[in-house]
């Protein structure tokens, strides 16, 4: 496929038509276009056929579905921020959205777009990984449900097969009393590609950690779960020893690189600092809840 040749464009009216179109050679989906247009402007459209799925009804809407929140893949970040279900039921995702890019980007950038673009610094995807979110991936021949954590492999590399489209994103509703905290590097509230981001979701029984999911962003090829730290925390109280051990485990497990946004050592320091902040805040949260 010659990327220098101008691609064709379709905006199908139905999901079925979109899936058919995506089966063509060199076809790819775009939603808001905030990632794709950067490449297109640089003369690298990278596709022979661009299929606009932003307005497909099946990819829109946010609804409660039992213990889950069901969101359309083309839900924009601005829609996430406005939605009371997300604010109450997935505060971690809401916090990530609040620190995402800028208001001008949020009206177009979508949830599925962020997942499929698979930047190691992707903030929304980080929150989804921490929350244990799943996606529904459709093709002309069927659909499958995949955990987000298993779907993203590395920079711009996901499990999305040719002809597939992420139609829905499902996020577990936060348990009552759950603690959610999104920490992100930088001097700005938003408009920042994270040098480091840490997404934490925890539940407690009294003082004891019942579940802990900590995801680290921009310190590995893909958003990663700090599994060693999570193991340290499981069924423990957040005393000083446990916190120190979890912080150390998270910092040790991540593999940041040196780049223009920071050195590897500084990023490890930030991981440690952010995990500590989250755990101390979680401890206060658990104490207040009693």
């Amino acid at each position: 496929m010659n990327a220098a040749v101008a691609p064709r464009y379709l905006r199908p009216a139905t999901l079925g038509a979109a899936l058919d179109a995506l089966g063509a050679p060199g076809a790819r989906a775009i939603a808001g276009g905030t990632d794709w247009m950067v490449d297109a402007r640089a003369g690298r459209p990278g596709a022979a056929l661009v299929v606009n799925v932003l307005r497909l009804a099946e990819l829109r809407g946010i609804a409660a579905d039992g213990a889950w929140i069901d969101l359309g893949g083309a839900t924009t970040v601005a829609e996430l921020l406005r939605d009371p279900l997300v604010r109450a039921g997935a505060p971690l995702l809401w916090q990530a959205a609040d620190r995402f890019a800028s208001p001008l980007v949020r009206t177009r950038a979508t949830l599925a777009g962020n997942v499929c673009n698979a930047s190691p610094a992707a903030d929304l995807t980080l929150a989804l990984v921490a929350l244990g979110a799943e996606i529904d991936v459709h093709s002309a021949s069927g659909c499958r449900r995949v955990p987000v954590a298993a779907f993203v492999f590395g920079p711009r590399h996901t499990d999305l097969q040719h002809g597939e489209l992420v139609v829905r994103v499902r996020v577990p509703v936060a348990a009552a009393g759950a603690f959610h905290r999104f920490e992100k590097s930088g001097t700005r509230p938003a408009l920042e590609i994270s040098a480091v981001a840490v997404a934490t979701a925890m539940t407690f029984s009294g003082h004891v950690v019942r579940s802990a999911r900590i995801a680290l962003g921009a310190v590995a090829p893909r958003p990663m779960l700090a599994t060693s730290a999570m193991a340290v925390l499981q069924d423990q109280c957040l005393d000083e020893r446990t916190v120190d051990a979890a912080v150390l485990a998270a910092a040790t497990q991540c593999q940041p690189i040196d780049d223009v946004r920071g050195s590897a050592r500084y990023r490890k320091r930030l991981v440690a600092a952010f995990v500590r902040r989250a755990l101390l805040a979680a401890r206060s949260h658990a104490e207040e809840a009693r």
Partner: peptide, 19 residues
Amino acid sequence: PERVLQGLIDAGVAADPLG
């Protein structure tokens, strides 16, 4: 932030988060 944190740690004013 990176330069300041390093300076604070070197001077013993801040603890190294990596402990």
